[in-house]
Amino acid sequence: MAKILVTGGAGYIGSHTCVELLNAGHEVIVFDNLSNSSEEALRRVQKLTNKSLVFVQGDIRNQSELDLVFQDHKIDAVIHFAGLKAVGESQQIPLTYFDHNITGSIQLIKAMEKASVFTLVFSSSATVYGEHSSSPYKEDFPLSMPNNNYGYTKLVIEQMLEKAAQADVRWSIALLRYFNPVGAHKSGEIGEDPQGTPNNLMPYVTQVAVGRREKLSIFGHDYPTKDGTCERDFIHVVDLAKAHVFAVINRLKQTGCRAWNIGTGMPISVLQIKETFEKVNGVEIPTIFVERRAGDLAAFYADATRAEQELGWKPQYSLEDMLADSWNWQKQNPNGYN
């Protein structure tokens, strides 16, 4: 079994991935600056798995902190989640996003090179496809300029990693392009805990359900979709976490740089989320329709065939599971980890 460094491992997807790594028998070292996450999540990860992990508080932009982790532990592979991820905020403070996400990734790659660790799974995003192709998105589609700075950082990092792998054959890199992660661990112990106003649909829905917010605003109801609202590819966070375990195993045996879409391939509308949530959980979600949001595509979903064929991964959880587990987490933790 491998010893794996997980940057940003205390965050939403990171903490769920730590559970899956520990359950699969791997050793885990988490490196996180806790700027948008909680150490409590890691305590709960250890409780859920009955296994311990090592936590190092540090910032990926800090070369000496990174070097120390690689000196103290014989690391086999890195899963890189650390970074800022609020789309709206990335438009207001682009340089901060470039610094955390791009500079931070460069420092990580340098530290890995110095320590002769060349296996990396990168947490990318489907935003790298831009908005000029049409769904379902395949990995060999041309990448294009995302319409926000968060997506831009993911595109730049992907391109950097590809060039690093071309220049040095020792690199083995997985680019995992996520669609829309939702849900929480079945136990309700860990889940999504955004700071401030949620940027994503699901935590907004659950915060309305738990009474933290008054109503859900749906942006636009005149799109060319089955019910007029935007369609997205929602994937259960536990399915997504498991994809990282499959990707690490694949990359420890291969070299080069390869991209995989991680989604269900099923378009689900915003209205469908609201209505199914109400039905599954017996909770009403007061809703209003508002103007379309600039840059929102009508439909955006994956073709995830490659991940099934090459990684042996496919999603197991249904939409109903995603919505029941999201509510179970929020209900048990009305104020998140606080």
Score class of each variant (00 low, 15 high):
146 P>H: 11
224 P>H: 10
184 A>E: 00
216 L>W: 06
158 E>M: 09
164 A>Y: 15
153 T>K: 04
169 V>P: 13
196 G>C: 09
180 N>V: 05
226 K>C: 09
157 I>W: 07
161 L>H: 03
203 P>Y: 02
181 P>D: 09
220 G>N: 13
184 A>L: 01
226 K>A: 08
179 F>E: 10
187 S>A: 09
177 R>D: 04
153 T>N: 05
154 K>I: 00
159 Q>F: 07
152 Y>W: 13
210 V>D: 01
194 P>T: 03
187 S>G: 12
173 I>Y: 08
185 H>R: 04
212 R>C: 00
198 P>E: 06
232 R>H: 09
167 A>S: 13
162 E>W: 14
194 P>W: 07
199 N>V: 04
215 K>I: 05
220 G>H: 13
207 Q>C: 00
156 V>D: 08
154 K>E: 02
166 Q>K: 15
194 P>V: 02
229 T>A: 08
153 T>P: 06
184 A>G: 01
164 A>D: 10
181 P>V: 04
175 L>H: 09
205 V>K: 02
169 V>W: 15
210 V>A: 01
217 S>G: 10
171 W>V: 00
193 D>A: 04
149 N>G: 03
200 N>S: 10
188 G>K: 13
190 I>L: 00
159 Q>P: 07
186 K>H: 08
211 G>V: 05
181 P>L: 09
179 F>N: 05
200 N>R: 12
177 R>W: 11
220 G>P: 12
201 L>R: 11
231 E>T: 05
205 V>R: 01
223 Y>F: 15
203 P>H: 03
174 A>R: 12
177 R>V: 01
169 V>D: 15
170 R>C: 04
145 M>S: 07
206 T>Y: 00
159 Q>R: 15
182 V>F: 06
163 K>S: 12
182 V>G: 08
181 P>I: 02
196 G>L: 09
149 N>A: 06
186 K>D: 02
229 T>W: 11
194 P>S: 08
186 K>W: 06
147 N>S: 11
201 L>I: 06
178 Y>N: 06
189 E>F: 11
185 H>C: 02
176 L>K: 03
171 W>Q: 03
172 S>N: 10
146 P>G: 03
181 P>M: 10
182 V>D: 05
197 T>H: 12
216 L>P: 01
209 A>E: 00
222 D>M: 14
204 Y>G: 02
166 Q>I: 08
211 G>K: 12
199 N>A: 09
166 Q>D: 12
179 F>P: 08
151 G>D: 08
225 T>H: 06
192 E>Q: 10
202 M>N: 03
166 Q>F: 12
161 L>D: 01
170 R>E: 09
224 P>R: 11
211 G>L: 12
165 A>M: 13
222 D>R: 15
